[in-house]
Design a protein around this nucleic acid. Sequence first.
DNA 1: TATACGATCTACAGCAACTATAGGTTCAAG
DNA 2: CTTGAACCTATAGTTGCTGTAGATCGTATA
Lengths: 142, 142
Amino acid sequence: MLSIGTLAKRTGTKVQTIRYYEQIGLMPEPGRTDGGQRRYGDVELDRLSFIRHSRQLGFSLQAIRELLDLSDSPERSCAQVDAVAQKQLREVEARIARLEALRVELQRMIRECHADRVANCRILEVLRDHEECLSDHDRLGG
Amino acid sequence: MLSIGTLAKRTGTKVQTIRYYEQIGLMPEPGRTDGGQRRYGDVELDRLSFIRHSRQLGFSLQAIRELLDLSDSPERSCAQVDAVAQKQLREVEARIARLEALRVELQRMIRECHADRVANCRILEVLRDHEECLSDHDRLGG
DNA sequence: TATACGATCTACAGCAACTATAGGTTCAAG
DNA sequence: CTTGAACCTATAGTTGCTGTAGATCGTATA
């Protein structure tokens, strides 16, 4: 039986995060000692490993919940799991594309500022005035 | 004089977001009508445009605060502004690199699942077991 | 067996950067 | 002068945790 601290170390999670996952129903309520401390087994270790690895891959907790539900269902459908993964891949690709655009514009901004070493800083002007670089009303993904 | 709604439309910002910026001191407290409604001028329009464009480029509100302070200071230093932009560029590049790694792994995961069309879904196994793909204790940047 | 001390407990506040809601007031067009 | 959209404040919710306070537990050592 593992204490919460040991489970945390094994999975690279913070203790509070494990308790948080329990609170939101992502991890089950574990058994307790007489004194009230949580004790975990291998099932919980597996489940938390799954959650952490999925988080590292950028899956939202909601997506992870779906994946866990699918993996718990008796005749789990590979197609459904695949759909979740595909969706995540598309999101990652969209974020990359967005960041690439940002990178290009930042580089251009910095380059222009360097060209003009003495006078007013171009960066501030660009940040103030530039309008065509990105579509309006477009938001940054978290 | 612009109402908050007009200012919002002109800058592609939500009304609540403008009030939020005022609340955290990023936007100044504007003048009011007799009835208590906010009225803005061109100075505020410029400032908010600056903030929104910087946000679109991925700058944090803290970084934007620094940029605004620099732009307000009488002998503003281009080097300091440049440093903030450079830092932002490095952060963007780091996020791109991280997402590229995620993309590669997601693609591999999905490809393996497709290769094995009938049996258990590989994606779930990979999510559960894979350990070497990303360094442990590594967190996703927001 | 007593003590010390780190680990754990609950409960709650806080972070970024907004977004949404409720319930009331003001402004401007017709 | 009426109507209704836009505005007001205040507060709670979002996502995914992180940090704190003050109390209790568990175990290694004297």
